[in-house]
């Protein structure tokens, strides 16, 4: 490939959207072309710059109005609040519909998933995400072994876009457990790990609970639960999980065809 072919694909290469073959071609070119290597670095820095711009979170008031529209209406009586009453009614209807017509798949698993989601939400709400803050697994693993009767396996998966933030002690199934905290873009992923004494391995099962994605599996004698508000597809890209599979070649090829189709912009 020459510079003219490489240049328009550099962004997609950086974003990990190219198939293996093109990625390899581009890497080979970058090895011998300083100009393109420089362009790539500049693109990378621009990406860092944008992620440093503020991500505007919803205000507490907005969240409160969406969650408890009724109390809002009592406090300030204005026509506009009728809209919130409609939102409330809608949510109630949706909740009742889900509750009535969607049977819980498995009582025990359902309960576990809810606990996992509760812990995840709590870790974000109470401003208590990390007990030990480090991107270095050599720091985190010993920290846990001093606090728990087991040492969780901590993996560095930053190459896949999951940055290790640190770890935290949490409580699940009536016992203290290790919570490993990863971040992808601005989304936090909690991974809970504890020993599964005498229980057989279990393949990964993904569920959506209250809009959060929960994946649970049992492997290497441990229970694993990952939870996040990432999209299901993004969470499944987490290589810790046995559900992680490199994208199918056919899918990659189709994706690439989409990418190199001339833009109609």
């Amino acid at each position: 490939m020459n510079c003219r072919e490489v240049e328009p694909l550099l962004g997609a290469y950086l974003d990990g959207e190219l198939d293996l073959l093109h990625s390899l071609d581009i890497e080979a070119h970058l090895g011998r072309c300083e100009l393109c290597a420089k362009s790539l670095e500049e693109l990378r820095q621009t990406g860092f710059a944008v992620s440093a711009a503020p991500r505007y979170r919803a205000s507490k008031q907005l969240r409160a109005r969406l969650v408890h529209p009724a109390s809002e209406q009592r406090r300030v009586f204005a026509p506009v609040n009728l809209r919130w009453a409609a939102v409330a009614a809608g949510f109630l209807l949706a909740a009742v519909t889900v509750w009535k017509f969607v049977p819980p798949p498995d009582q025990a698993t359902g309960r576990m998933e809810r606990s996992v989601v509760d812990n995840h939400v709590r870790s974000l709400l109470a401003n208590h995400l990390l007990d030990v803050q480090s991107a270095d697994r050599q720091t985190i693993q010993p920290w846990f072994s001093g606090k728990l009767d087991y040492a969780p396996e901590v993996e560095d998966i930053s190459a896949h876009g999951f940055r290790l933030l640190g770890g935290r002690l949490d409580y699940l199934e009536g016992r203290p457990v290790a919570a490993l905290v990863y971040q992808r873009a601005q989304h936090v992923v909690n991974v809970f790990v504890w020993p599964a004494t005498g229980q057989p391995d279990r393949p990964a099962q993904a569920h959506s609970v209250e809009g959060y994605q929960v994946v649970g599996w049992r492997a290497k004698g441990m229970n694993w639960w990952a939870v996040s508000d990432l999209s299901p597809a993004s969470l499944e890209e987490m290589p810790l999980c046995p559900c992680f599979m490199p994208p199918h070649p056919a899918l990659q090829a189709r994706n690439l065809r989409n990418i190199i189709r001339p833009a109609s912009d």
Partner: peptide, 27 residues
């Protein structure tokens, strides 16, 4: 892309354009 960490395909779905357009707009 940079704040929400979405894939080109997700962005294409949201903004209702082909993936190729997402790529060129990002570039």
């Amino acid at each position: 892309r940079e704040m929400e960490g979405m894939s080109y395909r997700e962005i294409a779905r949201i903004t209702d354009v082909p993936v190729g357009t997402v790529m060129s707009r990002l570039a």
